[in-house]
Amino acid sequence: MQKRHLPPLNALRTFEAAARHLHMGRAADELGVTHGAVSKQIVNLEEQLGLALFRRIGNRLELTEPGFKLLKASGNAFDQLSYAIARLEGQAIAGELRVSVPSAFAEKWLIPRLAKFTDAAPELKLSLLSAHASYDPAIADVLGDGLDLAVRFGEPVWKDGTARLLSHVGSFPVCSPVLLSGSEALSTPNDLLRHTLLLDDPAGANWRRWLAGAGLPNAEITRTLYFQDFNLLLAAARQGLGFCLADELTAGEDLARGQLLRPFRQSIEHLGAYFVVLPPLVSPAARAFAEWLEAEIALFMADPAL
Score class of each variant (00 low, 15 high):
Gln259Asn: 09
Ser176Ala: 03
Gly75His: 15
Leu165Asp: 14
Ile85Cys: 06
Leu143Val: 01
Ala219Ser: 07
Thr224Glu: 14
His21Phe: 09
Ile297Lys: 01
Ala28Glu: 14
Glu65Phe: 12
Ala18His: 01
Asp200Cys: 11
Phe172Arg: 09
Ile111Thr: 03
Asp29Ser: 15
Leu241Thr: 14
Ala203Tyr: 09
Ser283Asn: 01
Ile221His: 11
Leu198Glu: 04
Pro122Asp: 14
Asn218Tyr: 13
Leu31Pro: 10
Ala131Met: 14
Trp158His: 15
Leu124Ala: 01
Glu253Pro: 12
Val142Asn: 05
Asn190Ser: 11
Leu22Ile: 10
Ser82Gly: 06
Gly258Gln: 02
Phe117Cys: 02
Ala106Thr: 12
Gly25Ala: 10
Ala235Pro: 00
Leu249Tyr: 15
Glu269Met: 04
Ser176Val: 13
Phe230Ala: 11
His23Val: 07
Leu124Trp: 04
Glu107Thr: 14
Glu89Pro: 03
Arg60Ser: 14
Trp210Gln: 15
Asp148Trp: 09
Ala17Lys: 03
Arg164Glu: 10
Arg164Ala: 08
Val174Gly: 00
Ala295Trp: 08
Gln48Met: 12
Gly215Asn: 02
Phe68Tyr: 03
Lys72Phe: 11
Arg87Gly: 07
Asp148Tyr: 12
Ala92Gln: 13
Ala52Asp: 06
Ile221Gln: 04
Asp160Tyr: 07
Glu248Met: 02
Phe264Arg: 10
Leu193Val: 07
Gln239His: 10
Ala94Val: 06
Ser187Gly: 15
Arg98Leu: 12
Ser134Thr: 10
Val157Asp: 05
Ala286Tyr: 01
Ala73Ile: 06
Ser187Val: 12
Gln80Thr: 13
Ala302Lys: 15
Phe78Ser: 11
Gly258Tyr: 03
Arg55Gly: 00
Leu216Trp: 03
Leu49Val: 06
Ala298Thr: 04
Pro122His: 04
Val142Arg: 07
Ser103Asn: 06
Val277Ala: 06
Leu71Thr: 01
Leu114Ile: 04
Arg98Asn: 12
Asp119Pro: 00
Phe54Pro: 08
Ala246Ile: 02
Glu296Leu: 12
Ala104Glu: 01
Phe15Asn: 02
Leu88Lys: 07
His23Tyr: 10
Lys108Gln: 15
Leu6Glu: 07
Val151Glu: 01
Pro177Ala: 00
Pro217Trp: 05
Glu96Tyr: 04
Arg98Gly: 11
Ala120Arg: 11
Leu45Arg: 06
Pro8Thr: 10
Leu211Thr: 12
Ile297Tyr: 09
Ile297Ala: 00
Val101Cys: 12
Ile139Met: 11
Gly58Val: 09
Asp200Thr: 02
Thr222Tyr: 05
Leu81Arg: 12
Arg4Cys: 15
Phe275Pro: 01
Phe230Trp: 05
Asp148Phe: 07
Leu126Ser: 10
Asp201Val: 12
Ala205Arg: 09
Leu197Val: 13
Gly50Trp: 07
Leu61Asn: 13
Gly95Ile: 14
Leu63Gly: 00
His23Trp: 01
Ala11Asn: 07
Arg287Pro: 01
Gly90Tyr: 08
Trp210His: 15
Glu107Tyr: 14
Ser283Ala: 03
Leu129Ile: 09
Leu128Lys: 02
Ser74Cys: 05
Ser74Glu: 11
Glu89Ser: 13
Lys69Asp: 08
Leu114Trp: 00
Ala203Glu: 13
Thr222Asp: 12
His35Asn: 07
Thr224Trp: 02
Asn190Glu: 13
Leu186Gly: 02
Ile139Glu: 08
